[in-house]
Design a binder for these strands. Structure first.
Lengths: 109, 109
DNA sequence: TACCAGTACATAGTAGCGCTAAGTAGTGAA
DNA sequence: TTCACTACTTAGCGCTACTATGTACTGGTA
């Protein structure tokens, strides 16, 4: 993955995962494969699990353990009310940065 | 500054500084004040200087020392060809992420 | 004169985030 | 029994922005 992308994902990948969970609940392995199919082919598994641990500790998700037919039990994550609020803040922060950048880009022309 | 903003600036603040320089050359102190007046009131001076050192080492800018009437000599930074290319890559990466996020946001509704 | 605010640059130390790499564990197919 | 796939975990690393502090020059003012 490009170095710029790696650095830019800091602070945004967490939001992206939350956005995925906002669609519907999912478990780690599933999130990884979804990310990979949706334009982030190089996201490492470890990265996703680290984010899941973090957002659980922050209290943004609820976790439910469900058995799997194909391997170890899954930990299914659902966004809770606090998580939705956090996601909205994330979108706002992103929007703010987008505005500044668009403006700078215009000025630079 | 919000913690989300701090994390999101990782990987973008450097690009923002390059975008400012794309408008016209500037020196560190000036960049800091410009940032503060343009919606980033809490950017620390030290952060800006660290970025300037970095982009100089990466060869994205040329530096010229000019005397100041009001203090120590200024180091004026200008974006060079390599810097412009890097800035374009930055915009592309940003655009890619924007698309993914917009898409996720739509799906989440 | 002495002090302070403003200008201008520099840097050591810290925390957070994503990545690398390696491991554990369960299932089913070759 | 070996391998591939599923599924989760964790230690260590590099990079970035922030905090805090320091240096140095100018001009105003008490």
């Amino acid at each position: 993955m490009g170095k710029q992308m790696t650095e830019m994902l800091k602070g945004t990948l967490e939001g992206i995962v939350l956005a995925i969970l906002a669609g519907d609940p999912a478990y780690g392995y599933e999130i990884t494969t979804r990310l990979r199919s949706k334009g982030f082919p190089d996201i490492a598994e470890g990265t996703v699990y680290a984010i899941l641990v973090r957002i659980e500790q922050k209290g943004l998700v609820t976790v439910e353990k469900r058995p799997s037919e194909k391997g170890p039990p899954r930990k299914v994550y659902s966004l809770n009310a606090q998580g939705e609020e956090y996601l909205n803040e994330f979108y706002q922060t992103w929007g703010f940065l987008s505005e500044r950048l668009d403006q700078l880009r215009e000025e630079g022309k």
